[in-house]
Design a binder for these strands. Sequence first.
DNA 1: AGCTAAGCGGACCAGCTGGTCACCTTCAGC
DNA 2: GCTGAAGGTGACCAGCTGGTCCGCTTAGCT
Lengths: 215, 215
Amino acid sequence: MTGATSGAPSRSDAVRNRRLLLDAAAKTFAERGVEVSIAEIAQCAGVGKGTVFRHFSSKEELLAAIMLGMLDELMDTATELLTADDPGLALREFMAAGVQLLVRDRAFCEVVGRPSLQNPQVRAAIDRLCDAGEALTARARERGVVRPDLTGTDVVLLLAGIQHTAAPLLSTEPQAWRRYLELALDGITARTGRELPHPPPRRLPLASPHPDSGC
Amino acid sequence: MTGATSGAPSRSDAVRNRRLLLDAAAKTFAERGVEVSIAEIAQCAGVGKGTVFRHFSSKEELLAAIMLGMLDELMDTATELLTADDPGLALREFMAAGVQLLVRDRAFCEVVGRPSLQNPQVRAAIDRLCDAGEALTARARERGVVRPDLTGTDVVLLLAGIQHTAAPLLSTEPQAWRRYLELALDGITARTGRELPHPPPRRLPLASPHPDSGC
DNA sequence: AGCTAAGCGGACCAGCTGGTCACCTTCAGC
DNA sequence: GCTGAAGGTGACCAGCTGGTCCGCTTAGCT
């Protein structure tokens, strides 16, 4: 075994380098997406490439470590909002927090949007987030502030959709996501009487085995 | 000059191979995104790799040829819908056509969503599409069937957002986009009285020069 | 049929990636 | 300060990519 997944290192220099590495990776992944090379992350952290693989056995593991941190952060927000007074406002704030996180981090968008990039831990964290989203949505539904056929999975999926809507504008209008969040909120609170045309998704599917073309 | 952009070939075998190539590329790009290799496209078409570069001077040019075809198709739909009786229904059908195109083609999503992948011709076609979207939206706005501060660029951006919302469900619920299209339609037709919180984007920005991290 | 230029194709190249490893440096306990 | 082990590192590797090139094939005119 070369790369060590084995817990936190003990030596002071190792602790420091691990911190530098996580910070550098978080920053570069956020700005450029999952495609940044390990070499670049190492350079950004001011360490050698070998050091990266000493701390994380693969690029995927490094990425997962950072994604899990962000998912946990959003999960904490959701948990806190579950005890808020106004369920409608709580749902809005959850969505705003989620979209903001997505807007700020390109790798985060790519990972949550593409099941094939998800390792089991990330996948589990996303599932937990959907559950939290469901709880928040249920409270809002009971109060009648959102349409009755809206689910938590709908809400979580919408976060990515809103981010993606505003994405092309990011460089010139970094706050444009607020416009589309509002549009989405108006959509999910609409009391049209009609049901939505497609049944709500019960669960996010696992990664499709292969998009393999039949050529 | 090796690769030839120079118009259509004259010899019958060349014409046939070009057709095979375009079909294979459209299929593989649609299924797997812009990252499919030229080698794979060539294999799928049943020709050698060199033949690809004889017909298209670069991968980007091949991709652009296909993307332009799809953009033109959507543009035709939009033009036709501009003369429809019901502007509200026309806008809905335009959006349905756009989302459907995006859902069926992964490369199309990637190209329209990321300015850095757009060559000038593709870019121009997207701009024209935004203009058509603006015309359709204007008609709907005048009839009061959509909120007064909705623009054509909003509508075009929403297409990508809706597709992205439904994307994780694609393998198990290929029609889920209809649900989120309806949600978006309810959002843009909502008569809340309030203005949306962020001013409408006037124009899609060009590719940002570099997401270059300051490391 | 014969000729010629257009077309074809796959070995090849440079450049990139994630990941490995043997050697060297440094921490920390004594 | 000595020492042993943990940590750091960059040359290196295999595998991939887009793109080139030149010898071979073939279409299509005469």
